[in-house]
């Protein structure tokens, strides 16, 4: 098989980018999309040219590294999978394929198809955790959790943090990413004590990072490699409203949880 690739090339964040056309020849239909790019790169390196930079690691759809917009859709034409799980037999021979990076102000470009997604980490750092110390945990069966609750929490927790939801959203909103984490922890009794502050802190971080806001178009759900449901965005909104109500009844200045360490 052979393909014509229009790939976004950009040397660095400050440089101007442009599309460059490459021909991928002798592609076997059993090759994965990333292996096809590998072979293009091997050709470039052998000629002494810089290969196309793109991100990948586990190549089995779980690490969330790969991040290509293929013909206008993050992770390409098939639903419920990452770029690394896409195989060339999915494309007709001779197809023209356009490859772009995730595009969002909060994801500044590093090189070619590689962007900086640390904004997502900073959102988690703002509150996407349960602050328990190592060693003090009670037995795992002390708090019973119904199967349905555990399964729903797991549905949300399946997020791999790839950022496709941001890439697909017209407004570059991470609502699905945040909703998944907030819902995961809100469905578990262990996550409840901190739920009020968590949702507020995480949404404040979203604003700080320069993401857009959710327009409920549900395009995120359609490209999510783990098929995370937009119902978790509704739960995020509910948690946020709830936090507003609860907060108004809290004492004005709660004691800082880290008073001792500062």
């Amino acid at each position: 098989m052979k393909f014509t690739l229009n790939i976004w090339r950009q040397k660095g964040p400050e440089e101007r980018g442009r599309f460059v056309t490459y021909e991928a020849r002798d592609v076997s239909s059993d090759m994965s999309f990333l292996e096809m790019l590998d072979s293009v790169n091997q050709g470039l390196i052998a000629k002494g040219e810089e290969p196309v930079a793109f991100e990948q690691d586990c190549r089995e759809g779980i690490c969330g590294s790969c991040s290509l917009v293929i013909n206008g859709i993050p992770h390409g034409p098939d639903r419920g999978m990452t770029t690394c799980q896409l195989y060339m037999r999915r494309f007709p021979d001779g197809a023209v394929i356009t490859i772009e990076p995730w595009r969002a102000r909060a994801f500044p470009l590093i090189k070619d198809l590689v962007v900086d997604r640390r904004a997502l980490d900073r959102i988690i750092q703002a509150g996407g955790y349960i602050s328990v110390h190592t060693g003090g945990a009670v037995d795992g069966n002390v708090l019973l959790i119904s199967k349905e609750q555990a399964e729903t929490a797991m549905d949300a927790a399946a997020c791999i943090g790839c950022g496709a939801c941001v890439a697909a959203c017209k407004n570059a909103s991470p609502a699905l990413f945040v909703g998944a984490k907030v819902s995961h922890l809100a469905f578990l009794p262990q996550g409840r004590p901190e739920r009020t502050n968590r949702v507020k802190a995480m949404l404040e971080a979203v604003d700080r990072e320069g993401f857009g806001s959710c327009g409920n178009q549900n395009e995120c759900e359609a490209v999510c490699p783990k098929r995370i449901s937009v119902r978790f965005i509704a739960i995020l909104n509910r948690e946020y409203l709830r936090a507003g109500v609860v907060e108004s009844s809290l004492p004005a200045e709660p004691e800082s949880p880290h008073a001792e360490s500062t």
Binding site: G72, R103, A172, S173, S213, E219
Partner: peptide, 22 residues
Amino acid sequence: RNRQARPIAYAVREYRQASFAS
């Protein structure tokens, strides 16, 4: 604000689920 969140638009864009109305 939402426009600012994506300063560079995609060259190729295909919607999969977002309704025409939305």
